[in-house]
Design a protein around this nucleic acid. Structure first.
Lengths: 190, 190
DNA sequence: GTCGACATGTAACCAGTTACATGATTAA
DNA sequence: TTAATCATGTAACTGGTTACATGTCGAC
């Protein structure tokens, strides 16, 4: 973001973009956004709560959002954030910018698998079993969401990304199953 | 790693683990490791050069590796790092530790797709086309590597992870193609 | 005579995390 | 009475990035 007076770059961080994106759906508090993120974009982007609270004032400082204090009775006042036209423009700009081609490959699971020869066979099998189980759980979860939103025009783009989740989970299950079968074959025989 | 005297945790960062992993293949310099990483584990873990140079002295301090200076004639002396028994144990421990279940979902591409309604249709199409092209390129690359290493016992675990790369690329191509077809159908008609 | 490989590192920065701090309200 | 939900935020840290700095040697 670079909060200099004459910023030329004006680039959002992904978390800032995610927050602005959620704000397009209406004015929200940090608390709301956190819940919304956990429920909605979570598969795609999952910032820590503290990060959301950190980002919001910056967005206001940049003129991308405004705050309004809603008295909360006994509890702390609710800070309601609302997207500005400038914020919407900045978001659109960020969204339309090509994704950085070299977006870091960092997958701890694959890293472990890659060095599979350096651990006990059972440990490796455990990794793959957990991965498979997790993929199965995701698949079930995604299917449930699919039933809910499939065909609903308003969540078409969410549905697109969900379909990636489904496809990935299925591919993951197939691959882990295959590997587990292979490992079972080689393991005992050697 | 926590370089306290009585560390109980002794946990490696993934980059430290990756570097130790590469060192199991023999003594290497930072420069070597960087090239090796770019060529080998890159799909799985791709640290910046400077990060490798930062990690190496820490590994030595922790007793996980030793250095030996190899005079380089005119050029800077080569620092050759060699894995210690302790380092190998630490690596094994890290490798066998279950992967953190909640390993951050952060995919800028999917994030953009999720908010597809907030950008120009052509921009979204562009995103998907680039993604598809990139997946095609990866697929070709992975196939080439496959031809090289398939069946070679010594790279079995590298081959496992490569197969994930292949499967993922294929799934990605199928999904992006599908989405692009859909977008083409809705775009002009609406 | 220019480019890329060799070879090491530092400095400044950044995006994000975990744990801490506070405290009322409500439902089981 | 205990746990969850509401509601905000700070502090300390971490794992990483980009750009900078320096200089030789060999190939084309």
């Amino acid at each position: 973001m670079r909060t200099s007076t004459e910023q030329t770059t004006s680039l959002l961080s992904s978390t800032e973009a995610a927050v602005l994106g959620l704000l397009t759906r209406g004015a929200r508090s940090g608390y709301d956004l956190n819940k919304l993120a956990k429920a909605g974009v979570a598969y795609v982007w999952a910032p820590a709560k503290s990060q959301i609270y950190a980002v919001l004032p910056r967005l206001v400082a940049a003129g991308y959002a405004t705050t309004r204090s809603v008295p909360g009775g006994q509890r702390p006042d609710k800070q309601l954030y609302r997207l500005t036209a400038k914020g919407r423009r900045a978001l659109k700009e960020w969204l339309e910018l090509p994704v950085d081609d070299a977006d870091a490959a960092r997958n701890p699971f694959l890293l472990k698998a890659f060095f599979g020869d350096l651990m006990e066979p059972e440990a490796l099998v455990g990794h793959f079993e957990r991965r498979r189980d997790r993929a199965r759980a995701s698949l079930a979860e995604f299917k449930a969401i699919e039933d809910e939103i499939a065909g609903r025009e308003d969540s078409y783009y969410g549905y697109l990304t969900l379909r990636w989740g489904l496809a990935e989970a299925r591919t993951l299950i197939r691959w882990t199953d295959e590997v587990l079968r292979e490992l079972a074959e080689r393991g005992p025989s050697t």
